[in-house]
Design a protein around this nucleic acid. Structure first.
Length: 551
RNA sequence: GGCUCGUUGGUGAAAUGGUUAACACAUUGCCCUCUCAAGGCAACAUUCAUGGGUUCAAAUCCCAUACGAGUCACCA
């Protein structure tokens, strides 16, 4: 029996050769320096902030170099596949407007280098595995789970390196005839790569983020094809796919760094050019005093659901992620406030090598700045979109009260230094509910300060609303009138009051607080003048009546 | 245990042998002010994990130690 015959025995129906596939997927027709990158999630869980960061970096790399960004669904672990995970990935990419140029979704293939779903590429992998067997660099391994367990135990006990290599790779020594015999008998097997590396020899690998790293050569005979579903393992699929799809830059998590020696040998064995690698740092979380990997279970902010539900502007989340990814992003952003994020010249070298804590305070700050710069109608639209998906109650109210909502959102906006009240859309209602009669009537929990005597409050309010307040007054006129009236009732302006606090009932702030609380129940609101303009005389009088009856 | 990487303030971090260790967020204080928000101005690492060494000079180079992280599946 020859290698070729063994290969045919294992893959009788695979007729295409790797040369055939080389022809099917020729070099891409792109500019020199254009990057071909991929986002390659496995649908074994819902997209988290780390995946997202990787997607954003890939998008950046591709767009800024006029390259290609494709999505490859790495679904080779069928057992752990989570339903809805793929839909969620596409939803997020669409939501954040970072859709790939090439992908395969719901039966639709976009791009010439597909299929983009690994389980649909099984014949391709088999052709490559077959080739490896033919040249004697892969072999069927019949080690059972129990045997593997034993080897492992022995290695642990005797403090040997763990893994299948050297004398532990028992099936390596089987003759081709023996192997064929056992296959014919129906024994289960995996295909292992036959490593020729020497653990005592070192080689230097250059990672774009981490720089030069010296590794020992790989000498592990790792499985490249699984026994049950005959799907390839990650390592082998990475080799085949990124070669045929002509990936130039692989962005992947740091956890892959230790697989580099293996991947290096795999590419070398086929004589394929290795892509460049950008190993990104992990996103960590501070939990009390412990710093650990961010956890999908414990940290709600780890999953991408969080930011959507809270209603963070998409660009704020992207900015926050890029700020972590690249230390000079923030500076670039302040210098280029209006440029799209993907024009940022992302530099792998500037990525932090150690893990970064994801700082929600920082996100809030970035987000507040974005929201403060939106026009009121734009903000309203975003707010409405958010409410439609996340809070029906709010949605009903603000769609009914569109004009008043926009007016409220416009308070101290579109000025040089706008208010920064909202870090996300879900926080708007908490700061504006009192503008809606329905909500206002529900609460009626008045928060008066120093002046809380009903008689005095009415003394101020009655005359003020009836005869002094004029809707047509400018803000200055309005405030002058208030000051004048306050003085009459023995409330001083700030300076006078500070000089002589005991000779007055209170100061102008105490005075306006009374008006504010009667009208809103709250002692803290944006500019009272604007609130009153929006409320209008009728509603204010109504609210005064309500106050009379309920306080 | 093997392999690899890392360790600058509460957080993200800059600096790549040369005066007082950038900047941003957070925090605190003051000012402004009808409250709030915003804004303005300050404060916040006598020190870069620890110990040695090289050098006129070290956060930056070298060595050791400690601590932390990742990985060592027919998971990705």
């Amino acid at each position: 029996m020859t290698n070729k015959e063994l290969a045919n025995l294992i893959f009788p129906n695979i007729t295409k050769t790797i040369e055939d596939y080389e022809k099917m997927y020729p070099e891409r027709n792109i500019d020199v320096g254009a990057k071909v990158v991929r986002f390659a999630p496995s649908p074994t869980g819902f997209m988290h902030i780390g995946n997202f960061m990787s997607a954003v970096i890939n998008y950046c790399l591709a767009k800024s170099s006029k390259g290609v960004f494709f999505l490859r669904n790495e679904d080779t672990d069928q057992a752990r596949t989570v339903e809805g995970a793929v839909d969620f990935i596409y939803h997020i990419l669409d939501f954040y407007n970072i859709m790939p140029d090439e992908y395969e979704y719901k039966g639709k293939i976009v791009g010439n280098y597909g299929p983009y779903i690994q389980s649909e590429r099984i014949e391709i992998y088999h052709a490559f595995v077959k080739h490896l067997i033919e040249i004697g660099r892969a072999y069927p391994c019949f080690l059972t789970k129990e045997e593997l367990e034993e080897i492992r135990e022995y290695q642990t006990k005797s403090k040997k390196r763990i893994g299948i290599y050297g004398k532990y790779a028992k099936s390596r020594n089987l003759t081709l005839d023996e192997a064929a015999e056992r296959i014919k008998k129906g024994e289960k097997f995996v295909i292992r790569f036959k490593s020729e590396g020497d653990f005592n020899k070192k080689f230097v690998f250059e990672d774009l983020t981490q720089g030069k790293i010296e590794f020992p050569e790989n000498d592990l005979d790792i499985p490249i094809m699984k026994s049950g579903d005959l799907l390839p393992t990650y390592h082998f699929a990475h080799l085949v796919d990124d070669h045929l799809m002509h990936t130039t830059h692989v962005v992947r998590g740091n956890e892959w760094l230790s697989s580099v020696p293996l991947h290096y040998e795999l590419f070398k064995t086929f004589g394929f050019k290795m892509p460049k690698y950008i190993h990104t740092s992990l996103i960590l979380k501070k939990d009390g005093d412990v710093i650990r990997k961010i956890s999908k279970r414990k940290d709600p902010e780890a999953l991408m659901f969080y930011y959507e539900e809270k209603g963070y502007p998409t660009i704020a989340v992207i900015d926050a992620v890029l700020t972590i990814a690249n230390s000079n992003y923030e500076e670039w952003r302040t210098n280029n406030p209006d440029k799209p994020f993907y024009e940022f010249p992302f530099s792998p070298k500037k990525m932090s090598v150690s893990g970064a804590l994801f700082d929600l305070d920082k996100l809030d700050n970035i987000s507040k700045n974005y929201i403060s710069k939106m026009s009121a109608p734009d903000l309203y639209q975003e707010y409405l979109n958010w409410a439609l998906k996340n809070d029906k109650h709010i949605y009903e109210i603000i769609s009914k009260e569109k004009s008043n909502t926009i007016k409220f959102l416009n308070i101290e906006r579109e000025v040089k230094k706008p208010r920064k009240d909202y870090e996300n859309y879900s926080s708007i209602f908490n700061k504006s509910w009192y503008m809606y009669d329905e909500e206002f009537n529900k609460k009626l929990d008045y928060h008066f300060g120093k002046i809380n005597d009903k008689k005095e409050i009415l003394n101020i309010m009655n005359n003020y609303l009836d005869s002094i307040y004029d809707f047509n007054d400018s803000q200055d006129e309005w405030f002058n009138k208030i000051k004048e009236y306050a003085k009459k009732l023995n409330y001083a302006d700030m300076k006078e009051y500070k000089e002589n606090p005991d000779s007055y009932k209170g100061n102008i702030a105490d005075f306006t607080t009374v008006i504010r609380v009667v009208l809103t129940t709250l002692d803290m609101t944006p500019n009272l003048y604007d609130i009153m303009q929006i409320l209008g005389s009728d509603r204010m009088l109504k609210r005064l009546e309500i106050f009379k009856n309920s306080y």
